[in-house]
Amino acid sequence: MASVEVSQQGRRPYRAEQRNRFLGLPLHYVLIAPTFLIVFGLLVYPLGYAIGLSFSNKILTGSVPFKWVGLENYIDLLVAKSEMWTSVWVTLRFALVGVLFEFIIGLGLAMVLNREFIGRTWLRVGLLIPLMVPPLASGLVWRIMYDDEFGVFSHLIRALGGDPPIFLGDPNYALYAVVATEVWRSSPFMVLVLLAALQAQPQETIEAAEVDGASGWQVFRLITLPFIMPVIIVALLFRTVDALRTFDLIFLLTAGGPGTTTEVISMFIYRWGFRHFKLGFTSAASILLLIATLLICVFYLRMLVVRQAAVQLTER
């Protein structure tokens, strides 16, 4: 009984009819309205508008009369001869190679930084620098570094008696030069996330395994890796999605060239959107990119769920 009194006295009972004095609406609607408006205005409406546009032939220059074209844009994009497939292939290579190297470098450095040694703090700070440099600045700096005449890489190769390639102009090297820049820029993210996971690992399990005679490799493979696996999956998810959307770096370094060697899907969308102003076609391509990204997210999240289910089963 006393508890009921406390409840009644200490907390004002909820009144469903409580209304905002100015608008006469239920207060909870008024309170949630700003967030709703922001989400609707910045996410739902543009997405809906883009989906709508993707079924039209809308061209910003206005010479072609507007009409609804159904699935025509999607069909044009998905047919075998579409230029989009070239961009899809470039994007996949860029994302897969980039994220793979980021993961390997990130995990390696995280393992190193997880140990005690002199200068560890400074090394950690140093590793953060690429994350702090604005993408525009880092893109321009790397462009100069790749320069055939004045670039540091060409200089080093010549100093060693070699003949440097045209890093950003040769179709055989351009994509990998861009990937290398992306790896430099994004590996620190991987390091930070994986280092946090490694540091959360209980030392007792490792010590117990070592007492049982497990080798370093066995400890890593059978204890550390399974422990940090959920974090690895999430980190890979973030980086893959980011890599699929990369635009700024490629725009700065190669603008999609030479030819279409580095024209990732976002450059493709930019070119058709802002050079040809074909908004209907571009919207359809954007929606396809969104769907592809969502599918990849689902794939990673499913891996996470399966992994957790397996862990729970083992624990039982």
């Binding site: 179709p171 060239g257 030819g259």
Partner: peptide, 23 residues
């Protein structure tokens, strides 16, 4: 004409592809 800039974009893509031996 109105589509000139788009024509330029098409030309740039193929000319560069030819120069770099992609086409």
């Amino acid at each position: 004409t109105e589509e000139t800039n788009e024509v330029f974009d098409i030309m740039v893509k193929h000319i560069n592809a030819a120069i770099t031996r992609e086409e």
